[in-house]
Simulated scan of single mutants.
Amino acid sequence: MEQERCGWVNSDPLYIRYHDEEWGVPVHDDRKLFEMLVLEGAQAGLSWYTVLKKREHYRKVFDGFDPELVAAYDEQKLAALLTDEGIIRNRLKVQAAVTNAQAFLKVKHEFGSFDRYIWSFVGGSPVHQHRTRLSEVPASTPESDAMSKDLKKRGFKFVGTTICYAFMQATGMVNDHVKACFRYSTTAEGQGNPVPGFETETLVTD
């Protein structure tokens, strides 16, 4: 008997593997968080499936999503990226990756890690949702609103509240697997672990 999954998953093994192994699993590695920030921004106006199919190529041409390297991209590098059919060739989105890398490094310097900063929007621990149907999953929440507002204030681009909530879902800040999905309970099992070294005080304020 085939395992039941969230309704947004198609039959592509790549998409199934992403759902089963990554989506909703807490991420605390800064480079991985930067990768997801760039890719969620690239998704704007498109489907995640479209971006997912291009992810390996993105990793290649964006130097493994090393924010130090991406922050230093010059016009020549940007021009090369915009001719690469393996990525989303949107100038604003490609430029945003560089801008966001620069802002990312500033946040990392201020808070010690981007991980520590971004997880403060959920108090350092994942939020375990209890959705029974896909239609109950929101496009945004007060937490993603706050994240979007603060990221924009810090100079980040393509970080609207809907993109921020998709980022939160993808990196396990929230568990939005529906109850019927086999990953609902298995993902929840690891959701009580806070960010390593995270204190309970609020890190981000207006």
Rank of each mutant, 00 (worst) to 15 (best):
M1T: 13
Q3F: 10
Q3P: 00
Q3D: 05
E4D: 10
R5F: 04
W8E: 08
W8R: 05
D12M: 08
L14C: 07
Y15A: 08
Y15G: 08
I16A: 01
D20K: 04
W23H: 10
G24K: 11
V25P: 01
P26E: 09
H28C: 05
K32D: 10
K32N: 07
L33C: 03
L37M: 13
V38L: 02
L39E: 03
L39K: 04
G41I: 06
A44T: 12
L46P: 00
Y49K: 15
T50G: 12
T50E: 14
V51L: 04
R55E: 11
E56L: 13
H57V: 03
Y58P: 11
Y58N: 08
V61M: 06
G64L: 09
P67N: 08
L69I: 14
V70S: 02
A72H: 04
Y73R: 01
Q76Y: 00
L78H: 08
E85N: 08
G86T: 11
G86F: 09
R91D: 05
R91F: 01
V94A: 13
V94M: 13
Q95L: 15
A96F: 03
A96L: 01
A97S: 12
V98C: 03
V98K: 05
N100R: 00
L105V: 06
V107N: 09
H109Q: 08
H109W: 00
S113C: 13
I118C: 02
F121S: 09
V122Y: 06
G124I: 13
G124P: 15
G124W: 15
S125A: 15
V127F: 12
H128I: 12
T132A: 02
R133Q: 15
S135I: 03
V137N: 09
S140F: 05
T141N: 01
E143D: 10
S144C: 10
S144D: 10
M147K: 06
K152V: 04
R154C: 01
K157F: 02
F158A: 11
G160S: 02
G160R: 00
I163P: 01
I163G: 02
C164S: 05
F167G: 07
F167V: 10
Q169Y: 13
A170V: 14
A170T: 14
V174R: 06
N175G: 06
D176Y: 00
H177E: 09
C181M: 02
C181S: 00
F182Y: 13
Y184R: 12
T186V: 14
A188K: 13
A188N: 11
E189H: 02
G192Y: 01
P194G: 14
T200C: 09
E201P: 03
L203S: 06
V204H: 04
V204Q: 03
